[in-house]
Design a protein around this nucleic acid. Structure first.
Length: 431
RNA sequence: GGAGAGGUCGCCUAGUGGCCUAGGGCGCCGCACUGGAAAUGCGGUUUGGCGCAAGCCAUCGAGGGUUCAAAUCCCUCCCUCUCCGCCA
C-alpha cells in the first residue's frame, strides 16, 4: 500500500513514477473520495462528542436527589436523534473509507529511480558469467536427461496430481533435497534464522503480502468465509508467510535488521499456457523454494537488497552454474516491489536464461499493509522495510544443473557442494 | 468434532450499564533526593485519525444487536486453556 499522505502532498510525482510501469493513474477520484471521507468523518466525530455530552447529563441528573424527569426525557430524545444521525454518518464514512481503501489497494509500488522504465524488453543485464558454454557433443534437454537417468517421473506425476505435477524419484529426489540442504546450511552459516512456516495461511496473511485482493486467482483457496473471501489458502511462496511473522507488531530498532529464511513448497495455479517452453520441472503447480527475507529500517534496506543479491549469486556460483543477473524494468517488477533483480540460470535446451531467484525490495509497501513498525530512537514510529529473495528455487535449478553438467556419455557430474548428499556422478544408465 | 473456562493499555490484574476521559502493580522513560547507586517521592508511558493549537473522535479479540448511554447485557465468529473423541 502506498502512503496516502504522499499522494495528497504530491500526486504528480507519484503519477509520473507509476508511468514507468506503463500505468496512467488518475488520483482525482481517490483524492475526492478522501476529502469527502474526512469531511464526513469530522461531522461524525462532532455528533458523537455531542451525544456523549447529552447522555453524560442524563447520567448526572439521574444521580441527583430529585431528577427533573421532563428534562431527562427531553435529553433522551435529543440523544436518540443524535444516535440516528450518527448511524447515518457512520454508514457514509464507512462506505467512503472502503472505497478509498479499495482504490489504494489497487495501486502498485513506486519503482526506484534507478529502475528502467518500460516492460520486460527494458530489463537490463547487470552482470553474468559471460557467453553461454557450448558443449562439444549433441546435448540432451533436461526432460530427456531426467527420464534417462530416472530422476523425475513426469508421466506418473500427472497420474497422481494432474497436469503440472511430477515425482522426484531416487537420485532425483536426493538431488532436490541436496540443493535444499546446501541452501539451508549456507543461510544458517550467514546468521539467518531458519523458519518452517505453515503452508495454509489466512486471508490476512494474503492481504499483507499483497496477494489479495488483486491476485486471488493465482492461489489455491482452500476455505472461504461467509462473504466468499478467502480465509485459508495454500502459500504461493513462503514470503507470504514471512511477511506476516511480525504483522501488527512494533519492533525495537536495535533488533533490526531481522534476517530470516524459510523452506516450503510453493503452490500456484499459474494460469496461462506457456507449457511448450517450460516443460518438465520448470513450471508447475507445486515447486520447492528456499526464501530469504529481511525486515529493516528505512535506512538499511538498500544495503540489505545488495546483501540478498550477493547471497543468491553466491549460491548459483557455488553450484558452478552459468548465469546472469538482470535488473527488471518497472513494468516487469511485481506490484509490491520498488526494485527487483533476477538471478537467471542458463537452460541450454531452450536457449534462455530462466529466473531461479528474484531479489526484491518492497520498502514500506508490505509493511504498511502488514502494520510492521519500529520505534526510532526519538520515540517516533516508522513503517519497516521488507525485502525478499529466493535462495533459491530448487525445482528450476535441477534442469539447469543436469543440462549444464551433462557429459558426452549421457551422465551428469554433480556440483561439489552437493556431494555430501549425492554421488559425484549420476549415470550413464544402460539403455 | 463435543463439553466447560477465558480473551482488558509491553507483562500481571481491577472493573457485571452512567464521574471508566479504563483504576492498580511490575517494567520502562524523565525529574527530585545521593559522592554514586539502591530505596523513596513526583510526573510520564496503547495505537490510529482529525486539528495551527487547546483539544476532539475511535480503540477493552472481531463483527452485529439492545439502550439516551456498552469493557460491562444479547447473538455470531476467531483465538487461548482444561477435559473428551480422533490421529500422524
Amino acid at each position: 500500500m502506498l502512503d496516502l499522505n504522499e499522494i495528497r502532498r504530491d500526486p504528480n510525482r507519484i503519477k509520473s513514477a507509476l508511468a514507468k510501469r506503463g500505468l496512467d493513474v488518475d488520483f482525482g477520484e481517490l483524492l475526492a473520495v478522501d476529502e469527502e471521507y474526512r469531511r464526513s468523518q469530522m461531522r461524525l466525530e462532532q455528533a458523537r462528542a455531542e451525544r456523549k455530552k447529552v447522555s453524560g447529563r442524563v447520567s448526572e441528573l439521574r444521580r441527583s436527589a430529585q431528577p427533573d424527569e421532563i428534562l431527562v426525557d427531553q435529553l433522551r430524545g435529543q440523544s436518540q436523534t443524535l444516535g440516528e444521525q450518527i448511524a447515518e454518518l457512520e454508514k457514509r464514512a464507512e462506505a467512503l473509507s472502503a472505497s478509498r481503501q479499495e482504490m489504494l489497494d489497487g495501486l502498485p509500488n513506486i519503482p526506484d529511480d534507478d529502475v528502467p522504465a518500460g516492460g520486460k524488453e527494458a530489463n537490463k543485464v547487470v552482470r553474468g558469467s559471460g557467453e553461454p558454454p557450448q558443449p562439444g557433443f549433441v546435448a540432451l534437454d533436461h526432460v530427456t536427461l531426467a527420464e534417462n537417468l530416472g530422476l523425475v517421473d513426469y508421466k506418473r506425476g500427472v497420474k497422481l496430481g494432474g497436469n503440472g505435477s511430477w515425482i522426484y524419484t531416487g537420485v532425483g529426489a536426493q538431488l532436490e533435497w541436496a540443493l535444499l540442504n546446501y541452501f539451508v546450511q549456507t543461510h544458517i552459516h550467514d546468521g539467518y534464522t531458519f523458519i518452517l512456516p505453515p503452508h495454509l495461511l489466512t486471508g490476512e496473511a494474503g492481504y499483507a503480502a499483497g496477494q489479495f485482493p488483486k491476485f486471488v486467482e493465482d492461489v489455491y483457496v482452500v476455505e472461504r468465509d461467509e462473504q466468499g473471501a478467502p480465509s485459508k489458502f495454500l502459500l504461493p511462496t513462503s514470503e507470504t508467510a514471512l511477511v506476516s511473522i511480525h504483522r501488527d507488531e512494533i519492533l525495537r530498532v536495535d533488533d533490526l535488521p531481522l534476517r530470516y529464511f524459510a523452506y516450503s513448497p510453493c503452490y500456484r495455479k499459474e494460469i496461462g499456457g506457456y507449457r511448450t517452453h517450460e516443460r518438465g520441472t520448470l513450471r508447475g503447480h507445486q515447486f520447492d523454494k528456499v526464501e530469504m527475507f529481511q525486515v529493516t529500517t528505512a535506512e538499511q534496506s538498500d544495503a540489505a537488497l545488495e546483501e540478498l543479491l550477493g547471497k543468491a549469486e553466491a549460491l548459483v556460483q557455488g553450484l558452478g552454474l552459468h548465469y546472469r543477473i538482470s535488473l527488471l524494468a518497472a513494468g516487469d517488477t511485481s506490484a509490491s516491489m520498488t526494485k527487483t533483480y533476477d538471478v537467471e540460470a542458463w537452460i541450454p535446451s531452450i536457449g534462455q536464461y530462466l529466473e531461479v531467484s528474484s531479489v526484491s525490495n518492497s520498502r514500506a509497501y508490505q509493511a504498511r499493509r502488514a502494520k510492521i513498525r519500529y520505534r526510532r530512537a526519538d520515540g517516533t514510529l516508522s513503517f519497516a522495510h521488507t525485502l525478499n529473495a529466493s535462495g533459491l528455487a530448487t525445482s528450476r535449478l535441477l534442469p539447469a544443473i543436469i543440462e549444464q553438467n551433462q557429459q558426452a556419455d549421457g551422465s551428469v557430474v554433480v556440483p561439489h557442494v552437493l556431494r555430501a548428499w549425492v554421488p559425484e556422478r549420476i549415470g550413464p544408465n544402460p539403455k
